[in-house]
Write a protein that binds this DNA or RNA. Structure first.
Lengths: 132, 132
DNA sequence: TGTTAATTGTTATAATATAACATTGTGTAA
DNA sequence: TTACACAATGTTATATTATAACAATTAACA
């Protein structure tokens, strides 16, 4: 079988919802919100999430156990992710900085380990929150 | 009250164990292993973990929900963490690379957000596993 | 010594995620 | 077009990770 070109029903339902809310959202929150579409159980959501992460349509914000839609149209950098996270309002935005990604992709640790993936999460206060 | 200089009893028990195992370990695994020391409940472990993370004695590997002792003696960089993670054997090592940390500390995103903390996790195969 | 904050102990429960198994759908090649 | 292989689905149960709430105790220090 060739690499899947179209999403399955559940995958599409979950992706549609994540793209609609446009902010990090948790698995059980997704579940509550797609039940009207016929998805009834956590596993149905988690399986869709797994696949969507795998193909780069969404990313997991590890420190928050939440998922966001990928903002890099064609998802070429799904194995090289960076986010900024406001510790006050929890706003998350994906960082697309070619210098940063180039730097990290080429990073070699002292043990000579070759990386094929990384995830970077920055924490701080967003502009709005830093003036409060 | 001044900043705490000595660890509390539970904090010390948990830290001792984490330092002894010398690899990432999960909260409930810690719990099982320190029950002989009188720690009975998850909360006792989680509270110790929270404090130890806060003061930089340990770090959380977010993608694995596991905790490791900090390798940087005086823990000055506890707000700037980087790890390499082998996706095969799950070996984790802390990266201490002053160029990398300098680069990331000074990174400015396009929204002008000022960061006070970051966590970076690299994934790949360690030397041993890449020859299997 | 009185006050405040940190820590502890304890029970219960919330939140996140996977196991196991039976069934159905889909692409492709004989 | 049938048979195969694999992906996806549906379902129930359960595992794993983490916090809420509240009472009691301990430690620092003005």
């Amino acid at each position: 079988m060739l690499k899947q070109e179209t999403l399955s029903k559940n995958q599409q339902i979950v992706l549609d919802y994540i793209e609609k809310v446009n902010e990090p959202i948790k698995a059980y929150s997704i579940l509550h919100n797609v039940q009207k579409k016929g998805i009834k159980a956590p596993l149905q959501v988690y399986r869709a999430l797994d696949k969507l992460v795998e193909i780069g349509k969404i990313h997991k914000i590890e420190s928050r156990n939440a998922f966001v839609a990928c903002k890099n149209s064609n998802c070429q950098i799904s194995k090289a992710t960076a986010f900024s996270i406001c510790e006050s309002c929890e706003e998350v935005s994906e960082i697309s900085d070619s210098k940063l990604s180039k730097y990290l992709k080429n990073f070699q640790d002292k043990a000579g380990m070759k990386f094929n993936k990384y995830n970077l999460e920055f924490f701080g206060l967003c502009k709005k929150c830093s003036f409060k």
